[in-house]
Write a protein that binds this DNA or RNA. Sequence first.
DNA 1: ATCTAACCGAGACGGTACGTCACGTCTTACA
DNA 2: TGTAAGACGTGACGTACCGTCTCGGTTAGAT
Lengths: 202, 202, 202, 202
Amino acid sequence: MVYRYNEIVQTSEVAPPTPGRPRSEAARRAVLHAVDDMLVEVGYAAMTMKGIAERAGVGRQTVYRWWSTKAQILLEACVDDARSELTTPRRGDAQRNLLDYLVALTEFLTGSPAGLAYRALLGEAQHDPEVRELLCTADVLAEPTQIVLDRVRPVAPAMPEDRLAATQLYGPILAQVLTTGSGLTRSLLKTHANSLLYAWQS
Amino acid sequence: MVYRYNEIVQTSEVAPPTPGRPRSEAARRAVLHAVDDMLVEVGYAAMTMKGIAERAGVGRQTVYRWWSTKAQILLEACVDDARSELTTPRRGDAQRNLLDYLVALTEFLTGSPAGLAYRALLGEAQHDPEVRELLCTADVLAEPTQIVLDRVRPVAPAMPEDRLAATQLYGPILAQVLTTGSGLTRSLLKTHANSLLYAWQS
Amino acid sequence: MVYRYNEIVQTSEVAPPTPGRPRSEAARRAVLHAVDDMLVEVGYAAMTMKGIAERAGVGRQTVYRWWSTKAQILLEACVDDARSELTTPRRGDAQRNLLDYLVALTEFLTGSPAGLAYRALLGEAQHDPEVRELLCTADVLAEPTQIVLDRVRPVAPAMPEDRLAATQLYGPILAQVLTTGSGLTRSLLKTHANSLLYAWQS
Amino acid sequence: MVYRYNEIVQTSEVAPPTPGRPRSEAARRAVLHAVDDMLVEVGYAAMTMKGIAERAGVGRQTVYRWWSTKAQILLEACVDDARSELTTPRRGDAQRNLLDYLVALTEFLTGSPAGLAYRALLGEAQHDPEVRELLCTADVLAEPTQIVLDRVRPVAPAMPEDRLAATQLYGPILAQVLTTGSGLTRSLLKTHANSLLYAWQS
DNA sequence: ATCTAACCGAGACGGTACGTCACGTCTTACA
DNA sequence: TGTAAGACGTGACGTACCGTCTCGGTTAGAT
């Protein structure tokens, strides 16, 4: 689970008050917003800790105090958006459940700031194992995919175990975006969904 | 097609001699080897143009003269290896053709230096459009995949158009490696191959 | 007037505190000392900004932050020494006043580190107008010469205006050192002083 | 004595022909002209061996084959001009002989390309002993000054030995130009000449 | 109403890689 | 052999960002 600011413990108790000046919520938000904006404006590579601090109007030390790397900031900035963008309403039709998800995923990966962030992080993960771990624990794709699979499973008796089924479902879409930069057309997504469903129903 | 040193045109003519001292083949090879070694030793992120030059025992300017970025060097260093590692011998059995390829791809992506390089480049491509373009023109995965699909197509009448079929085939494997860092087991690969073949044969 | 670190304004007020970490006096001194040492050890030409920083155990940016060129550092490092070395005590005898000054000047130019620095700067000034300006504003020779001239003027009614008188006094000594690298002997200095005094007394 | 291209031995014989391709006079002249031009166009500091070669349309190695440093080229390029510009016609009047020389010297140092070169070399000599030696052997100022002194000596019985007299004569002018960048006015030159003559006649 | 401790901004610090430039040497083909 | 061309290894250039540190100042709860 990702760090959440002033996270409330799940009992009825609140966090014990610490001495000293409390963390500035304004500074935190300024940093997250700065990261969001800069990602689309200058791109991941040109985004620096120094630049983020200046853009956020925040001291450099304040950034380092709460996050070690720009990947951490980016993850915190996008994970909630990602989750909501990848959640599709339940449909009666299994094929429609899959298609809706594939469309949402494609839009997420190609059009959304959160998706752009996810791709940047996934890219960084190929260079830096820590980022990969960060990304795995946040589970951005796995969770929403699982929900969709659970909806479909009742009518897909031949569906393989979750891990493979998930990667069969979103793998082609993700690979397509990562390698070419753009997604599949809606009609190809439909073909893909039908393919899988046919195979899983066997 | 990637730059090839002293590339001989395919006719009987050779390249016209340019004035001045010719490029040093030794320096070129030293750089490519240095990049190969450093990628596995220190990783992509810690690899710098300066470090490459020093490791290769080569002037910094010499590196910049022939390559703009470490991505270019890496691509030139790995593209041939990649192609050969992803080429599987033709089999009589369609399912075996697919499985062999999926196994080779998984080993390439998880075990081979060239595959490590490819992943690093694909990661960098998420940060830098120029790297993506470089990677697209080199076509590392597309070409070998196409060969396998062509072998299978005669017995797979429902196989969709090439682009989608290719991404259905290698997408799950690639996605799995990129997101988790490790590949699918052989038995899951077999299941995946069977799934696809079943769907494509209907 | 040359920049002086943390220069206190001459009233009772101090400089208003600037935000951020204050400049490190230790780093400033380390740079000035490094420059002093390196000038005599390796010479002006072989002295580089990089070398100065390393010798001083200081970051390169820290040097550039406070000085643009090695000439500036050198000037700041030597101007105070120069002034004190060129200041001779007042004598009753006019001829002795001149001679003492000429001797001090010769020793300064040929034997003192500060004088070595001055010659290097004067040399650089022939290549770079900015250095000349720097040197003019610092007024290394003009001021001490003026003091001596003022002492002598009462008994030298024919002494020309200051600029010419000064250059008549120190010009031969300076020219001798610059062109040959070594100074005039004491007896020639005496002859020179007598010559001038005779002409100025007319 | 400075190197002179294809210097003819003083007997009636010509130099024995050496084997191989003879040195290109065109290349030599191109280099000297390039140096002349670049000195006034970009200044001494910005003049590089590489730039000289390119400007002259000459190979880099060709420059290095015949000269080690830009100082050597500059000296060869300007020494003849310097000598002729500093030679004044003999006058009957001693004071006029001095004044003419001082004026010529001032114009040389402030207005002539050859004088600019001389100042640059003298500047460089403060950083590099080899350049000083080069400059001393070429004797740019000493020789013409000596000629003038010899003309004046008959009517100046108190003139000190040559070295001091020369430096008394030209030192103030040289010092003035080196320190301020501009020369003394004609009327000050006149005053200076009179001063010296008065002292030397006593 | 202090006191104290952790926060905040600003910015200098020692490092290090960046991409460029010139150095002086070398290796070609040609004259 | 001399020449123009140009690649070579070397190393300084001035800039940018790294992550740390040191200031003055702020903001709370505890005394």
